[in-house]
Design a protein around this nucleic acid. Sequence first.
DNA 1: CATGAATGAGACTTCATTCAT
DNA 2: TATGAATGAAGTCTCATTCAT
Lengths: 197, 197, 197, 197
Amino acid sequence: MVNGQADKRRAILDAAIRVFARQGFHSARVSDVASEAGVAYGLVYHYFDSKDQMLNELFSERWSLLLDASEKVQEREGSVREKLGGVAGFIIESYRHDPDLMKVIIVEVTRAANTFGQTHLPEIRKAYARIADIVEGAQGAGTFRDSVSPQFAAMAFYGAIEQVLTGWIFGLLPESETEYELAKAHIVRTIVGGLAA
Amino acid sequence: MVNGQADKRRAILDAAIRVFARQGFHSARVSDVASEAGVAYGLVYHYFDSKDQMLNELFSERWSLLLDASEKVQEREGSVREKLGGVAGFIIESYRHDPDLMKVIIVEVTRAANTFGQTHLPEIRKAYARIADIVEGAQGAGTFRDSVSPQFAAMAFYGAIEQVLTGWIFGLLPESETEYELAKAHIVRTIVGGLAA
Amino acid sequence: MVNGQADKRRAILDAAIRVFARQGFHSARVSDVASEAGVAYGLVYHYFDSKDQMLNELFSERWSLLLDASEKVQEREGSVREKLGGVAGFIIESYRHDPDLMKVIIVEVTRAANTFGQTHLPEIRKAYARIADIVEGAQGAGTFRDSVSPQFAAMAFYGAIEQVLTGWIFGLLPESETEYELAKAHIVRTIVGGLAA
Amino acid sequence: MVNGQADKRRAILDAAIRVFARQGFHSARVSDVASEAGVAYGLVYHYFDSKDQMLNELFSERWSLLLDASEKVQEREGSVREKLGGVAGFIIESYRHDPDLMKVIIVEVTRAANTFGQTHLPEIRKAYARIADIVEGAQGAGTFRDSVSPQFAAMAFYGAIEQVLTGWIFGLLPESETEYELAKAHIVRTIVGGLAA
DNA sequence: CATGAATGAGACTTCATTCAT
DNA sequence: TATGAATGAAGTCTCATTCAT
């Protein structure tokens, strides 16, 4: 069975997503992941070196998609709004597609300033840089005012998105297919055009 | 000596801030806090019931100040910009005053969706509500367009601020007295007026 | 292929010698043995019941040769010196022929007072008895003084040899073809004639 | 209670000696040591960093005494026989005083070519060097023939002693106060004067 | 014969918390 | 108040062994 191997590995990783999302990485025991996946304890260690490695892999797997998407968005022709909309859209789609995974990534990696955040800082930084590039382009073209640095703007933009996801995660913002679509537009409009009437 | 007591308690709390900021809450041992404070192991348990309680206290202590400030800002006369500027200003001043504490609050509580985040959700929610109130007021007055919900706008605004702090924490944004001042203005201008020229 | 079977089995056993010698029995994993032998994990268990059994077999295989040799030496005509020289010679030749195997035998069995040492005590005891018999014969013939018991003398003699091997194993004594030959003579001369001038 | 601390630490170390001697280091669980000492599991780790450290300390503690004794013996005036007798005597007395400890040292360290043996090789080597020095002195004085190297002679001498201890440990040689005394004399006589009549 | 995925008991180590002094 | 020894539950990781293919 050629997929038997890959399937179990995937099953463990998927179980890890659910367990990490539910209990948090630190409170999640490896045995929780194993039983969630319906496999024996030791099999987890057959496929992964450590509990940490699972989280690392989960993060990198998803984050590299985000980086690829940001890359493409930036290279494509289009207005700033379209480009920033592409980035926001991808992140929100990622959440829509697998909210647990995005929760884990945000809560355990992106904001975990000490352990995993530090480990993946280069990858994280790259994503911010992509956004900053977009802003910088718009400033060069005169579409954006240049009173704020591109890096600052990138942080504000990304932070706004992440916090909306956090709102959904914590149950502070209403969640629905419509809301997801609205959010994409709203985020960009808020950051680009501002809240002012 | 009536202050001897208070001093030791304070010393432990302050040590906890430094240790939690440096190592993260989970990696920090109670003994680390004790030795950072220069007191004996067991004394921590004389003043606090548990390791968790220290973090809870640290959070609530600071967060209540934020709530108070938001309250006052809202009640005071002034433009939306001034009000939002007041909130952003208070948060950034909090970071300027004690970066370690704000780091701990953001990393370990505000974004920790499972444990402490859940515990303090009511308090956290209250802060978001204050911001939403300000937005709602501006929408009622016609100063803000009402295409986005006040709650959504509040999240975007707060998220932008928090991410700027995160940028400082991670060393992704330049940090200086000037930068702090600029940030206050930039955040409000970005969210209220947008990035567009 | 009747030898295909035997070959794989032998390959595993030989690999075990190298791995046990390199890492020690306890630190050696069955998978280490398998990969050293270039066979699959489970095949080890096709040929052997357990990890222990490999060591047991390794020991018994070699030790029985030593017992046979001691037997023959004892029965043969000759002086005590020649007989003891025969025993010492055989042990040193064993080391010369396969140092890893002798290292494993000495380190993991002969001196392992609790586990394998106990298991193989009867076989080990037999070897000491052969040496004691030789000494006893010499004492009966008046060639050796009888102030020490044959058992005691046997231990001293065997211990001297084993420690010389240990010296080679640990790199404490120089090792070369010449040294091996010298050692054979020196050991016997030292024990029989003493160090005194 | 000023000795309370030291007592518990000692008790654990002493318990470790008994447990390691009985079950062997690898088969001994830390919990076995703790319950043998009558203390809680965790207290072992209050006093020692690891299971290994206990063995290391046990070894070094005793071995340094042996080194000191060898040092003194060598410096003292006296014949070679007296000097070698001093060394053999000290080792045998060590065994008489605490057979379990000597068993552990020999079985788990002195002959454990891989882990602990390697760790303590410098200390072990020093002891052999002391004996070699004595032999060298006797060869220089013409008391000993110089056909064997001092190092070789030292190994043979030390090996003979250690094997006698091994004989006691394994129950292969009779053990009694008288036997201990006899052994001291016999070992030296055997190595110095030889077995020949 | 051969493979290597799957199992699960076992052991070390950590560390929050308690307690005697 | 203050100390730090003492407790023991909990969790990660290892690895011998089994088993389905």
